Simulated assay, not measured.
Amino acid sequence: MIKKFLLTMCLLAALAVGGFLYVKQSVTDFIAQPLKIEQPHLVTVERGNNLNTIISKFVDDQWINPTQFSTLVRRFHPNLTQIKVGTFEVLPGMTFEQALNTIINGKEYQLAITFIEGSTFKEWREQFKQAEYLEHETDGLTEAEIARQLGIEHDKLEGLFLAETYHYSVGDSDLDILKRAHRKLDVILEQSWASRQDKLPLKNSYEALILASIIEKETSVPSERERVAAVFVNRLNKRMRLQTDPTVIYGMGDRYDGNIRKKDLREATPYNTYVIDGLPPTPIAMPGKASILAAMNPENSNYLYFVASGTGGHVFSKNLRDHNRAVQQYLRQLRSKK
């Protein structure tokens, strides 16, 4: 009788151990299965979600096969319960366990938006519309309304943001990026203004920003920026009009079709520096740091004119006669290429 009892107990114990090992192995196989995805996917974990929530999502999306033992994952693998809030990227080839570890240990998925130096605020707004996973809080707002949201005193926002690449997370907004871009611009602008040359014909850092935006649009050659700045500073000191085409183009707005005609140069817009004296009322683009520094610290030279060289840079002149010669040379080069 005792032997029969002991045999029964041994059998039950064996069944229990076997059942335990079977369940444990089933759970191990469950988290070891590869994800059934063929391209990267984003997984957003919201506040209040837990391991069971994530398992249900992966099963519902048919990224993994279900198991009746899914609720036991936390018992056998407690290290997989520390789910973080955020958005994470899972990749083809990952196992479910690797995907969970990405959510637990990985960095939140970052997107990026790049603004080119010399771009305009209008172009920025178009880029925002195309940006993935970005909340559009500025849609339908005027520039003045956006300025108030940002605490900016100017109604027109041109030039008031630093053009560079900004990383953001899912759920961030265009307003968040604008705040960061404005703060970065402010830091560079004020630092540059504090270390500017003496006796510049600029009343404040905002006027320096206007000049920097013109420099940005006039040349993309790094070695020319200080010399271009010198031309405009020299002209301002001599009370000569700046006569720079990018300001004319900006003043034309959507009417600009790629050509500037004589009537455009004579048109009285607030930005036409062939007509107005001094600087235009606002920047005409988003300048980069190098152009801001050039505006504050122009080259020490007597140049008053420049024209495209036809080879990627510009020819600088100290008097109108030499400038006219350079213009004629440039026109000959253009005709020779036709």
Rank of each mutant, 00 (worst) to 15 (best):
190 E>I: 02
197 Q>E: 14
109 Y>V: 01
283 P>N: 11
123 E>Q: 13
62 Q>F: 06
7 L>H: 05
312 G>M: 14
167 H>R: 13
190 E>Y: 00
146 I>W: 04
211 L>W: 00
295 A>Q: 03
73 V>M: 02
112 A>D: 10
105 N>K: 15
32 A>K: 12
248 V>K: 01
214 I>R: 08
211 L>S: 00
168 Y>K: 15
306 F>N: 13
97 E>A: 07
124 W>G: 03
281 P>D: 11
232 F>I: 07
210 I>D: 00
161 F>A: 10
296 M>R: 07
251 G>S: 04
204 N>T: 13
149 Q>H: 03
331 L>F: 10
174 D>F: 05
102 T>K: 06
303 Y>P: 04
262 K>C: 00
204 N>Y: 00
295 A>W: 03
97 E>I: 12
140 G>N: 01
268 A>T: 15
306 F>Q: 02
23 V>R: 03
9 M>G: 04
38 E>W: 02
90 V>W: 12
205 S>K: 12
268 A>I: 05
35 L>W: 04
199 K>S: 10
31 I>L: 06
269 T>C: 12
93 G>F: 12
172 D>G: 07
135 E>S: 08
197 Q>P: 04
122 K>D: 01
58 F>P: 00
58 F>Y: 11
17 V>Q: 10
197 Q>C: 04
52 N>A: 05
251 G>W: 09
279 L>W: 00
